[in-house]
């Protein structure tokens, strides 16, 4: 089997004495989609923050297509072919939609989609000239996704894309993610909305208190006693 595109091993992150991630391992191949679930505070977003370079890990490694990327600043991670979205989208508010994408496209590691196609994909066609700060929350979320895609990532870390979207928008978002995976992109999808996640993938990793407690099929996960205990308490 070929080497996985993204390989995370023994990833640990301490904030002072608090251990947010405790030796997490993970691998993703091209076109593979893995859901990352767990209760609040289990370390899902911290994992994305560390893998994407926002925080340096306390211990452990992240390699992208065989090249170590941990400890580098986010822009180096972006340029080597991995990007992320944000739970609360923060597009560059003072710039127009078009400028947001032009900037991101300029540092693309790989040939990205043309801007027009990108806008069509996320459903922002016709809004190129709008200042990003004047978009509504849903549009900002789409722009955030388009910004990540404009850098031409081979691995995309998706943080709570479903939160705050309407049912119709959820279907659309799930369609976009499936389409990206079919085109060969590897996706790690942090999600609270299980219905939404189920439309994208069956493969999940469950985190609790900074540790992986389950990896496998979504259907098996809901029968796993430890997963059930963690989610329902008791």
């Amino acid at each position: 089997m070929a080497e996985p595109l993204l390989l995370v091993s023994d990833l640990t992150k301490n904030f002072g004495r608090f251990c947010a991630l405790d030796g997490v391992g993970l691998d993703l191949g091209a076109g593979e989609v893995v859901g990352l679930v767990g209760p609040n505070g289990s370390g899902k977003t911290t994992l994305i923050n560390v893998v994407s370079g926002l925080y340096p890990p306390t211990r452990g490694t992240v390699t992208l297509a065989g090249r170590p990327v941990h400890g580098g600043a986010p822009h180096t991670v972006v340029r080597s072919g991995m990007n992320r979205t944000f739970q609360i989208a923060k597009p560059l508010g003072g710039l127009t939609v078009e400028e947001n994408l032009r900037l991101a496209g300029a540092s693309a590691g790989h040939r990205p989609l043309p801007e027009g196609d990108l806008l069509q994909l996320v459903g922002l066609s016709g809004l190129q000239g709008r200042v990003a700060g004047s978009l509504n929350a849903s549009q900002q979320k789409r722009l955030d996704l388009a910004r990540a895609l404009a850098t031409g990532p081979r691995v995309l870390l998706v943080d709570e894309l479903g939160a705050g979207l309407s049912p119709a928008e959820l279907d659309q978002a799930a369609g976009i993610l499936r389409q990206l995976a079919e085109a060969g992109m590897a996706l790690l999808v942090v999600e609270h909305l299980m219905g939404f996640l189920a439309k994208v993938t069956r493969a999940v990793v469950v985190l609790n208190a900074g540790r992986q407690i389950f990896r496998g099929d979504l259907d098996q996960a809901v029968q796993d006693p430890e997963v059930v205990r963690v989610f329902l308490g008791g």
Partner: peptide, 17 residues
Amino acid sequence: RAIRSDAVSAEFAGINV
């Protein structure tokens, strides 16, 4: 201008802030 707008997002647009 992007950095001034939001340094973190600018990083993830690939800018060496």
